[in-house]
Design a protein around this nucleic acid. Structure first.
Lengths: 345, 345
DNA sequence: CCTCTGGTTGGAATCGATTCCAACTCTTGC
DNA sequence: GCAAGAGTTGGAATCGATTCCAACCAGAGG
């Protein structure tokens, strides 16, 4: 293996000089610089990464902690895709900066991660927060290690990148009302998840703004699972005056809702409209193709990496928060009602 | 940051002794060992990874090169899933060994990868070979760097882990014949891909073994795209004596074939049976759910990592080849024919 | 009582880069 | 002709671990 000493010998200079050339430092005469560069080229020299990391006290590497997706053996959880997109976004940004990316699963204990930091293996962490134990986030925060969380964390002192759940839910209401719907129900997610609460809050605020009714039976509980969506829709179909549109706050519950309508011998969207949230890959293959809110997953990943670099390089002071907006994807699960909208928009 | 010197001071011993304890080397008295372990515990000491890598001349890290999936912005290519599974398998094996995994995309030039190796950043590479440029494999091979390729590479001097394409195709024929089919067509992949050739060869051998006809019109070209599957199926439907079953050698072409049958006003499996290959996630959601061959993607990843470690640790001499068998997943796209099979199996 | 052996332990060199500081050369100006 | 200063360059220390070698000690055996 060729080292800096070999280059120095070949160019007839000292190692210090080679290092100076390597790092574009001033104080090397043009001729010497040229000679060194030539030697580097000829010997195909590349600095030993460990030697550099040791001396510079920087690993030039970041870690991405994702849930399960690289650990569990069963592979049909939509989460896999969800995470993959975010990772891709972060990965590409890091690659551009010539930083290395290491994937970690979230099954490690805090102690496991802490040991990696103490080993100085990474300069920072991106934690993809989907159902991740909040305690882990809190513990990681205490280490003072540069950390960016992707997702909705209640703690305002953690750096985070998130999608605009509140605004997106409002957009869904605006869209449905624009299509002439007035009796709109919601199927909620687990209330302990901030994302659920934000989507519900956005929904309710906008409904109130339109002066639309919010009966309690239209506010169905759910837990993000297909099954819970199925059950919630069944309850909604049995209400004396059923809604004309249902907003399931994630796609899996929307899938369950679709199935419930079908099993009840009715049609989506003819008898009832359904909107989801996430735009998971199967959404477009459903029957009917699902109208839903597309989360900018790739962009979330990119934003997380950018934020981390901003923090590492001191361009941003630490408790920072970035919010990206999502976009409504119109497919065929919503039917415009005959009663035309009374809205300007 | 706490270093080995701090531990040595705290325990009242030399750094050499701490290092010996750290690496479970003999020649340390039980009492001293205990004292050192206690100091390590109290100080939460972890060795600096770069210092170790530098001295040991081992990075304890491997690289996985995957195609595109972490680079392209469009996310609905099935390849993403394909790679994710393989990566998960390899990742878990590496994590068990406390090795770090770094993902690289295949867009780098050979020079880019070579520079990483020369930087000694990785101890070995797993290259996930789906459509990857063979030249890259050849170039990497010349560096002498430990390399394992996942997929079908023609070069027998490259370490590889692959699925048994030949045997799986034979299994498909056996299954279809067992269901009473005799007029079976195949939709091929690009002939420059070894996997295509192997699947075709397995198919033809088994057909011949059953004494079944192999008319040229039953041997349709394709290029793995949905569109090519659609077109091939259209051609097959217009043959004077159309096949009763069609084997598309990947799922995307099978999807195209399904669509072609539907567009021709016919039914799968009532009018014609279809078998795919891969078992991509949507396969189960298709109409009808697709009978296909499941590639053991996760297991391929695991096997690749195991093989790499075997090579690194000298348990296996270098040109090694591991073949895993795939399994047929029966769904609803194949119909048993009335004429019962004359076969024992 | 002295030597030899085996078990412990510390000292120093080493891995490959970076960087501070000192030394050197060459102008420039008096 | 010599001092001052700028521009180059090399030497040596350093990052944090590992490992060879030498030194030390205790107990066994002569």
């Amino acid at each position: 293996m060729v080292t800096i000493t070999d280059v120095a010998k070949a160019a007839g200079v000292s190692r210090s000089t080679v290092s100076r050339v390597l790092n574009n430092r001033p104080g090397v005469s043009p001729e010497t610089r040229k000679r060194v560069l030539q030697a580097i080229e000829e010997l195909q020299y590349q600095p030993h990464f460990a030697a550099q990391a040791l001396k510079r006290q920087r690993a030039e590497s970041i870690a991405i902690i994702v849930q399960n997706s690289f650990r569990e053996k069963t592979g049909d959880e939509p989460r896999g895709y969800y995470n993959t997109e975010i990772v891709r976004g972060a990965f590409n940004v890091c690659t551009e900066r010539r930083y290395t990316v290491t994937l970690l699963n979230d099954e490690g204990t805090f102690e496991f991660y802490a040991s990696l930091f103490r080993r100085r293996q990474f300069d920072g962490i991106v934690l993809v927060h989907v159902d991740v134990d909040l305690r882990l986030v809190e513990e990681l925060k205490t280490t003072g290690f540069p950390l960016v969380v992707v997702g909705s964390v209640p703690d305002p002192f953690v750096n985070s990148v998130d999608v605009d759940n509140y605004g997106s839910a409002q957009q869904v209401v605006r869209y449905l009302v624009g299509q002439g719907h007035r009796r709109i129900a919601i199927i909620n997610g687990p209330p302990q998840r901030l994302a659920s609460r934000d989507r519900r809050a956005g929904f309710r605020t906008m409904m109130r703004q339109f002066g639309l009714p919010l009966p309690e039976v239209y506010d169905q509980p759910g837990d993000f699972s297909t099954r819970s969506g199925y059950e919630a829709m069944n309850r909604l179909l049995n209400v004396p005056e059923p809604p004309t549109a249902v907003f399931a706050i994630n796609d899996r519950m929307a899938i369950g809702a679709l199935r419930a309508v079908h099993d009840a011998g009715k049609q989506v969207p003819d008898d009832i409209s359904v909107v989801g949230f996430d735009d998971i890959p199967v959404a477009q293959y459903l029957n009917p193709p699902l109208t839903t809110v597309r989360q900018p997953l790739y962009e979330l990943g990119e934003a997380a990496a950018h934020l981390l670099f901003d923090i590492l390089e001191g361009r941003v002071s630490s408790p920072a928060r970035v919010v990206l907006s999502a976009s409504l994807v119109e497919r065929s699960s919503v039917k415009p009602l005959a009663t035309s909208s009374m809205l300007s928009e």
